[in-house]
């Protein structure tokens, strides 16, 4: 399984990164049901806004192909689970946990993400483990 401890999409910034939230973009820049990629201290983070306004952050690296493309996948639901499908070979991942629904042995690292209540900006934090 992934080494990420906090799987919730929003929450307090973990201590491993000194509690630092990194700004990504404004919430309105995100197209519903589509992703973008943020480069945060050399780590590629795929950021998604779903139809219901939820935010998710996962590693942009597709473990099946080795290419950084997860942010360009199609969003959807599978049995109610919010998902993203890798654009490369179409494996589907759970946006909440990063677990691959087609091969549960595989999972994408996930990142804490939030919408700053004061500025409306979307922010992502790196955990110690994600930073490698």
């Amino acid at each position: 399984m992934t080494t990420t401890t906090d799987l919730r999409p929003t929450g307090p910034a973990p201590r491993g990164d000194g509690g630092r939230w990194h700004p990504v973009c404004s919430y309105d820049d995100l197209i519903p049901e589509r992703g973008v990629c943020a480069l945060i201290e050399g780590v590629q983070v795929a950021v998604f806004r779903t139809f219901d306004g939820e935010l998710y952050a996962l590693s942009n690296l597709d473990p099946f192909s080795g290419a950084h493309v997860i942010s360009r996948g199609i969003l959807g639901t599978r049995g109610g689970v919010p998902t993203v499908a890798s654009p490369m070979y179409k494996e589907v991942f759970d946006l909440r946990t990063g677990v691959c629904l087609d091969d549960p042995q595989v999972a994408l690292p996930t990142f804490p993400i939030r919408r700053d209540p004061a500025t409306g900006r979307v922010e992502v934090a790196l955990t110690h483990a994600n930073r490698q």
Partner: peptide, 12 residues
């Protein structure tokens, strides 16, 4: 050139 290559070991 794929720098990282497929990384399925991440999860296993």
């Amino acid at each position: 050139v794929l720098v990282t290559g497929p990384r399925l070991e991440v999860a296993s």
